[in-house]
């Protein structure tokens, strides 16, 4: 994250708008450029369209009001998660980027909040994402909002670094319990004090 060239103060109140397909020619090149900056290898245009075409309503952009240029973007999806029983409607934050000059002013947080609100409105049970283990600012951002690290993923990225899966539960999960085994009948007694 480049510290230099950072704006002391935001020029004016940024505009936050929801993405829609009609904005593709105007904003997709800027979105790709902004997100590719932090990637060792660019995603193909299909990756962007995969998200934007299907879940444009879960994608938000922060725009500089003076020239409507792109300052930040968040890209998400929302699907039923099949490998779970019971089935859950799982939101997923795929990409989040803010132009380096505009960092440190809560733009990313504002974008994430809009995405969470939009997914909650559509009945999401939970929202998940992955972030590189060394990306402390990103983890802090999500954890401040209520996300919890649920697992660590070994060598998740091409550069060999590991990631954390972060989860935000929006609705209480349904838990099916199995029958109680017979060993459960005894009461818990005191722990044996260490003999010396």
């Amino acid at each position: 994250m480049a510290e230099s060239g950072r704006l002391e103060k935001l020029p004016a109140e940024l505009r936050y708008i929801q993405y829609e397909h009609g904005l593709e020619s105007q904003y997709l090149p800027a979105i790709r450029a902004l997100i590719s900056k932090d990637l060792s290898e660019p995603y193909s245009i299909y990756v962007y369209r995969y998200f934007l075409y299907q879940w444009g309503h879960l994608c938000f952009m922060a725009l500089d009001p003076t020239d409507s240029s792109l300052v930040g973007v968040i890209i998400c999806k929302l699907e039923t998660h099949a490998s779970h029983s019971p089935m859950t409607l799982r939101g997923y934050i795929a990409m989040l980027a803010v132009s380096s000059a505009y960092r440190g002013h809560g733009v990313a947080t504002a974008l994430v909040k809009r995405a969470i609100d939009a997914m909650a409105l559509r009945d999401a049970d939970e929202i998940v994402l992955e972030t590189e283990e060394s990306n402390i600012p990103a983890m802090r951002l999500y954890e401040r909002l209520g996300f919890l690290r649920s697992k660590k993923l070994h060598r998740y990225y091409l550069n060999g670094s590991s990631a954390y899966r972060l989860v935000l539960q929006l609705k209480p999960p349904e838990i099916e319990r199995v029958v109680e085994p017979a060993l459960g009948e005894a009461e818990v007694s005191e722990v044996v004090v260490a003999a010396s």
Partner: peptide, 25 residues
């Protein structure tokens, strides 16, 4: 942290998810 989108109980559910399905203990 402030955690405006979460409650202590919700996070307890997430944290204890692997153990929630276990009958004993």
């Amino acid at each position: 942290p402030p955690r405006p989108y979460s409650t202590d109980e919700m996070r307890y559910n997430v944290r204890m998810k692997p153990f929630g399905v276990i009958g004993l203990p």
